[in-house]
Design a binder for these strands. Sequence first.
DNA 1: GGAGGCGCTTAAAGCGCTTTAATGGTGCTG
DNA 2: CAGCACCATTAAAGCGCTTTAAGCGCCTCC
Lengths: 342, 342
Amino acid sequence: MVVLGAEESLRRPRLQDVAAEAGVSTASVSLVLRGVAGPSSATRERVLDAAARLGYRPDRAASLLARRRSRLIGVVMDVRSTFHAQLVEDVHEAAEEHGYDLVLSTVTRTRDEGRAVETLLDSRCEALVLLGPEAPASRLSALDRQLPVVAVGRPVPSAGVDVVRAADDEGVGQAVDHLVGLGHRRIAYVDGGPGVIPAGRRRGYQRAMRRHRLGGHLQVVAGDHGEESGARAARELFASDLPPTAVITYNDRSAVGVLDTLLRGGVDVPGAVSVVGYDDSPLSRLAHVDLTTVSQDSGQLMRHAVAAVVERLDGGRTAHREVVVPPRLVVRGTTGPAPAGV
Amino acid sequence: MVVLGAEESLRRPRLQDVAAEAGVSTASVSLVLRGVAGPSSATRERVLDAAARLGYRPDRAASLLARRRSRLIGVVMDVRSTFHAQLVEDVHEAAEEHGYDLVLSTVTRTRDEGRAVETLLDSRCEALVLLGPEAPASRLSALDRQLPVVAVGRPVPSAGVDVVRAADDEGVGQAVDHLVGLGHRRIAYVDGGPGVIPAGRRRGYQRAMRRHRLGGHLQVVAGDHGEESGARAARELFASDLPPTAVITYNDRSAVGVLDTLLRGGVDVPGAVSVVGYDDSPLSRLAHVDLTTVSQDSGQLMRHAVAAVVERLDGGRTAHREVVVPPRLVVRGTTGPAPAGV
DNA sequence: GGAGGCGCTTAAAGCGCTTTAATGGTGCTG
DNA sequence: CAGCACCATTAAAGCGCTTTAAGCGCCTCC
């Protein structure tokens, strides 16, 4: 007895141990622990007691295998991206509300999106949420034939997969509105390079400027996603004899580059020049950067993503869906009234 | 046949389907697919063919349940930390080399370390790697009695759990050496607040200064982990009439605060003042920050962490172990020769 | 020619849980 | 008091894989 006890204590208690301890069947224990209606309150109590006494923890692998449905959503993220980090925080909450659990799989230097997805497929996920997927649309469509897939943050043509993304053009539009409201007219835009996301933001700038009848002041400078390109663009912009009074950039990193050049040049921000970024990244929140920027409401994004999954899984929806979430301008310290007399 | 085919094609093929297709038993298929010695090469080929033809993918949950050992290492990270992101990339590689797989569990706003650990315990992990754990040493020790635990990046007194961390004091020491080598003598340190990690770095500064017989120039200014504290510390330091010619900070964020204050004050960096951070975070690599900083070799850190796990799991080690990895000074653009004549 | 050995293969017993159909015990009705 | 409905409970059949011992044919050796 003692020896047995000693041996047994090394082993994790199983459902059967709890059943024995409570003097009921494993079926009852399973029902009670999952909160399924049926067992009497007397049984409930005994089972709960026994489980607590033994420190029982259900084995996920076994439970997963036995369960009809896994209620698991696979999420592919890039662990290097702070924005993905934000999204992951929010997807956790959203999934929980619907009674789903998550399996995370990350892309790294040595582990591409394909690998990340395969791991999830092997883990009984019922649906996939891909954060900023890089695979071509055709591959995503193929995946979608296996299980519901939603792409977050990136438009995917040739549909099939659901898409949840922010209205980037509108976001830049809001930035323009904000600046125009502050009296700015010469508003330049630092581009983000090729790609579908940069294109959307650029378009937003152009449209908003025209909407304000400022088509004559349109000025797009080449750039990419790094801060160095912002610095370069700023040098170019402010070498002219009629420089802009405001600059909108493709993203926050580029904006930080612009800010740095201005700061080094002794240009007052926002006194002489206003700067707006895009992403509301942790960078922009650094107290001494304090960048006005455009936020993609990650909470809303992920709520929609999870909702899309749940509708297809539990609601039987089959039609493709694209949700476009409005972004939100976050006004911080790098924007102010246009300087007088220019 | 056609109807059956249509129905069947919806179901994922199982081991049995492959066995049937290849005309062998499931046991053989299992052996072949796992690369276990035994099956003849003829059998191997037929099985591999059949598996490929059906697009078979093993079910992880089932495999996990049936396997004696899971060969799974659980990793707890904070998804918000860029340093953890780096560590996760490296732990993937290290684990793979030893034939282990990973399960990631992340801490978020709404999901604390305890929850993250529980998920892993329920997932059949054989060992836990905790990145920068926050739990008290007692809790970690308790956990360690259930399964091998290694804490990364944080010293844990009252041992039991293995520890892998960088020699922070030595890192700051290297920074001091570097600055002294450049002719600096009035080297100030911006502190990181309470806690065991800040304490280690502070100690490193003090010792190194004394080692260079600069004890008389010791100057520690209060601060914390944010950039605002760095900015404040810089204002304090440079209000004095004999300001330092170099500043070392607790971390990169603090250093960025210092840099910002200096830049706004028109102080030339590194001409008039040199600045050194700590962490080699992505922040420090931004081209216009280009901060000299101390890097904790994450690759080495994680290789040691995984090695520690493997030794306990496969090597039968039971003795506690603490590995201290030397950090590395990364010289970038914010440090230079001490200004002449001061 | 039979014992023994060797190389493949496989039947079958789980892994720890879920789920369904069946069991038995109640109290109620006619 | 037989008959019925109803509730709580449980036996048992999996979930898809791994693993072990046993089986089988064939060869070698005394």
